[in-house]
């Protein structure tokens, strides 16, 4: 399952914090037609690089799906940043 949402949380002691919900599903929806339009170019690039286009597609999909449940947190007494992909 590809990630549908990313949560970015920035906390700052001196200023206002930031809490962002990034709807990744909208990004996928926007990217889908672009990829469809670019597919002939992608196909040519794959053939030029001697790469199986279906395998490439499958691996790119796996990378996108693998992003789910990624969690990055960096905290400092002044600032802390949290990124969560769900």
């Amino acid at each position: 399952m590809i990630p549908l949402l990313a949560v970015v949380h920035v906390r700052n002691k001196r200023g206002p914090g930031l809490h962002l919900w990034v709807p990744l599903f909208l990004l996928w929806l926007l990217l889908a037609p672009a990829i469809l339009l670019l597919s002939p170019l992608i196909l040519v690039a794959c053939l030029a690089g001697r790469v199986d286009p279906l395998r490439a597609l499958s691996i790119v999909w796996q990378v996108c799906a693998g992003l789910t449940n990624t969690y990055i947190e960096v905290s400092h007494p002044g600032v802390s940043v949290l990124i969560r992909v769900v």
């Binding site: 449940n69 947190e73 400092h76």
Partner: peptide
């Protein structure tokens, strides 16, 4: 203290 916590699937 600075803390970094990363979880990669």
């Amino acid at each position: 203290p600075v803390k970094v916590n990363v979880r990669v699937p």
